[in-house]
């Protein structure tokens, strides 16, 4: 009896091991998260414990992002940096500042040229508060969606104006002087969210949502509230 069992059991174990190895190879290895800088010792309001700051950049290529030396596998791809996975505490005020180095053009859906879901419905562009930007000159957007799970819905979308094509290259840099966009919003309970860019800025032959737009770690990322 024992002998008869060994064969099937070994087969099952080998099969299980095969699938496990395959799974470990494919298991999504999230790159290190961009930790939010917690600054305020005093809570911003009675219900919120923290005010946190996150700084992101958008580059026209992958040289400066998280993709390693020389831009990794796809150096020409547009990307967010320094990382695309963001961790913030629950019930806090989050202020995100994005240095936008990239150009752009008309957006397909002008609704995303407006600011949605931020404190006061505004963002500041180089210090000036605005509720929307010119839909003909959008560089990127930073758009946060709720994942389809039972967690508090969170929708934030902030458009980033395009850097003009004729902008001069800044001294000591490969890029022109960035446009600084800042906006704030409140997080609710813990949850896992995703964010991405809703301006078609990827390569790819059709609809420009291929390449960096459809690959993890370039123009999309996770947003974890914990």
């Amino acid at each position: 009896m024992g002998k008869k069992l060994i064969g099937p059991i070994v087969t099952v174990l080998l099969g299980g091991a095969f699938v496990t190895v395959l799974g470990l190879l494919l298991h999504q290895s999230l790159s290190p998260a961009v930790a939010a800088r917690v600054t305020a010792a005093t809570p911003p309001s009675a219900t919120e414990q923290h005010h946190v700051y996150v700084h992101l950049d958008t580059y026209p290529d992958s040289m400066a992002g998280e993709h390693g030396k020389d831009g990794g596998a796809e150096p020409d791809w547009v990307s967010y940096g320094p990382g695309t996975n963001i961790n913030v505490p629950a019930h806090s005020l989050v202020t995100i500042t994005i240095s936008q180095y990239d150009g752009g053009e008309a957006i397909t859906n002008p609704w995303f040229a407006k600011v949605h879901g931020t404190v006061g419905g505004t963002e500041t562009v180089d210090g000036k508060p605005v509720t929307q930007i010119d839909p003909e000159a959008v560089g990127h957007t930073w758009t946060l969606h709720a994942a389809p799970t039972a967690q508090d819905p969170l929708f934030v979308s902030a458009p980033l104006p395009a850097v003009p094509d004729d902008a001069p290259i800044a001294a000591g840099s490969d890029y022109p002087k960035p446009i600084e966009v800042t906006f704030s919003f409140h997080t609710k309970g813990p949850g896992k969210y995703i964010w991405n860019c809703e301006f078609p800025c990827g390569d790819g032959y059709y609809a420009k949502f291929g390449g960096p737009m459809s690959t993890r770690g370039y123009m999309s990322g996770t947003f974890t509230v914990s």
Partner: peptide, 19 residues
Amino acid sequence: YHVRCAELCGLLHADMETN
């Protein structure tokens, strides 16, 4: 209630839902 996307539409298809 929910609005969901029922046709695989790329990377974040699973998240393409709203209220």
